[in-house]
Design a protein around this nucleic acid. Sequence first.
DNA 1: GCCATATAGGTCAGATCCCGGCCTACATGG
DNA 2: CCATGTAGGCCGGGATCTGACCTATATGGC
Lengths: 333, 333
Amino acid sequence: MDAMNDPSARLLTLLSLLQTPREWPGSELAERLGVSPRTVRRDVDRLRELGYPVEATMGAAGGYRLAAGTAMPPLLLDDEETVAIAVGLSTVAGNPVNGIEEASLRALAKLEQVLPSRLRHRVGAFRAAAVSMLTGNGPGADPSVLAVTAGAAAASERLRFAYRTRDGDETRRLVEPHRLVLAGRRWYLLAYDNERQDWRIFRVDRMTDVRPTGVRVPPREPPGGDAAAFVTGKMYSLAPTYEVLATVRLPAAQAAERLGAAPGEVQPIDEESCRLRGHADTLEWLASRLLLLGCEFQVHEPPELRAHLRTIAARALRATDDASERGGAAAAG
Amino acid sequence: MDAMNDPSARLLTLLSLLQTPREWPGSELAERLGVSPRTVRRDVDRLRELGYPVEATMGAAGGYRLAAGTAMPPLLLDDEETVAIAVGLSTVAGNPVNGIEEASLRALAKLEQVLPSRLRHRVGAFRAAAVSMLTGNGPGADPSVLAVTAGAAAASERLRFAYRTRDGDETRRLVEPHRLVLAGRRWYLLAYDNERQDWRIFRVDRMTDVRPTGVRVPPREPPGGDAAAFVTGKMYSLAPTYEVLATVRLPAAQAAERLGAAPGEVQPIDEESCRLRGHADTLEWLASRLLLLGCEFQVHEPPELRAHLRTIAARALRATDDASERGGAAAAG
DNA sequence: GCCATATAGGTCAGATCCCGGCCTACATGG
DNA sequence: CCATGTAGGCCGGGATCTGACCTATATGGC
């Protein structure tokens, strides 16, 4: 199969074998690699010298296996594992709520760059199901759009895409991407618009048909220097959001834990309740998060959220109403 | 730093450089690798012969970059990307709803096997936040328990762990793990209990302090042959679940899409409503899923779910009740 | 307690590969 | 048209790799 004469290729396949969570006797490795057992021992030595600790259990039932070291070894994945990782990263990057969004985006860009095309559509299929499932069918940004954009920004490549403005118009853009910024629950792209000759901010979930042009340009300095500040400053003009103020009957620590490092601040009121302040862009998201807290709470601030909670309450009551069960059309009003 | 005299190590770092989404001129690669440009060209050739298509753009502003080929190249990740991948896999494996659970579990086991300890606690910290955030704070199984168990099952290693029975008793077990099976929303371990000398099924979320013994045993044949059938057969005796029957005022296709490939069947009633049948183990999960559908629905079957929906409705109404806003203790009744 | 079987590693000789330096060919952008 | 990049052939000296010995040592089963 592979040319096992080449020590480098052999080391790679040896690594991939050792990453399987099982023990490999040296003789079997020798057979698989097509070399003598002595060479296998030498290769194992080489891996150890490279910093990848190959554990060996001695004795009659001995064997080799890869252990945790100080550096990550190169991951050698099969098709399904690759798809799983791509989908997993999509759920984290496409619905970011914790604090590793940028890293997951980098990893996703790195992965998409080398993803075989035969796996690409499988990833897409799973992604739709998984993301909508895990995130509560939010209208988040397409992870592959995110990945391509992040890659172009890192490579300083011009980017071409279609952008749907707030009014629903479709426009085509040619930009020099600078940085992706996460604000609230949405990704924004800070980029220099080549046609309009000015800096613009784009909502990534409104970008489609994204394709790198391949043209590299020297990176441009954004105005103000700090991309995040620039974006958050202009964000509210792009997407109207709701300011939330609520009282939650839960200790501040517990509330923060259940909410995750999500939007907003949590301030303790007393030992068993706290004040929640933050902003989000959809009422459904807010309502479901509050209800999933599993405790009593009061919503003070956005009247729309109060109205929406009443809507949900009414719907939940109708769902348990025996009267509407008989005549299906009764729920029309 | 690295011994760049070794061609194997050099190829690895070259791969890691090329995985960065940018273009690398050959001269810079030569400098970084500490070899002559001619050797870089030879190394690039070698990568291509190994099946990793290194794209090169010719001309004055040329350079090398790694493109998508037919096989996945070994992924070389930095710390943050590794953590992001581990967290992403945890959200998919620890809250499985789509159909790549087994693959994500394999990938997670592979990754945890070689995860440097310094990254381990960072993964743990993010995991708690991310999983509870994305899954709606379900009491799912600990992903690292899942990963260790999957690894032991793959390696045919005996496993020792503490198990909390339904009555709340803690027992210590020594088993030969056979397979992990996903049933409904929970992971189950089918294993041969060495002390009780019989096959047993364990809920993974009740396993703690899991540690492989390192003792390898020849794999045993499970009773019926098919692990999944065996588990689903005994599942209901382990965890009491709720049978759901509901009518949803949404076309069947849309309902299926919003519910994902989750548990249950969706049967169309007419063009704008359908019947939903399935089972799940927590009322919170069921209620939130139904409410997130964003449409009218009626719950027929589990009386507990009807009661829970009324509870939620009452809580939502109290949250918008101005009277209870003044006196905090008024919500006690 | 012994033996089979595993890892661990030293040594040697021959074949092979690797590397840098030099050369020419070719594509591209200013 | 020229500077600058990739592409690749050729050559010679030196380093490396491999298999085939060998011994030491740890472990589990009989």
